[in-house]
């Protein structure tokens, strides 16, 4: 029991990392008065772009940068809608989530093929 504690704590820490990062982002946008409902979509599109970037370049770092870039592009589009066009933030957020879900599913099938188990370069090595 007690010997599995470090493993348990380690995996809790590992699994909470994406939550901490995403929630920090949400706090920043909420401070600016934007309800960012499309965090899910941003994470999805970033995950896909990171996988694609890492696969194409063979480098995990390039993949990471691609992921951040993709989410930033999506965020910029949402910023234009929320701030410049003053669109309803709930509506646009849901729209971006749907769009990202569809786009990543579609591109995944087009790029990697239906049931790919391809291993991409990671930070482990």
């Amino acid at each position: 029991m007690i010997e599995s504690l470090p493993v348990f704590l380690g995996s809790a820490l590992r699994l909470s990392t994406p939550l901490v990062l995403a929630a920090t982002g949400e706090v920043v946008s909420e401070r600016a008065g934007v309800l960012n409902l499309s965090l899910e979509g941003m994470m999805l599109s970033a995950a896909f772009s990171a996988a694609l970037g890492a696969k194409e370049s063979g480098s995990a770092t390039v993949g990471l940068l691609c992921g951040v870039l993709a989410a930033t592009v999506l965020a910029a589009a949402q910023a234009v809608l929320s701030v410049r066009l003053k669109a309803n933030q709930l509506v646009s957020g849901i729209g971006f989530n749907l769009f990202a879900l569809g786009a990543t599913t579609f591109l995944y099938r087009e790029v990697f093929g239906g049931l790919s188990r391809e291993v991409i370069p990671s930070f482990r090595e």
Binding site: L81, V91, I94, G95, F96, L98, F99, A100, L101, G102
Partner: peptide
């Protein structure tokens, strides 16, 4: 279709 729905909403 999901992409289209998202674009319609946006």
């Amino acid at each position: 279709v999901v992409i289209c729905q998202g674009l319609i909403v946006i």
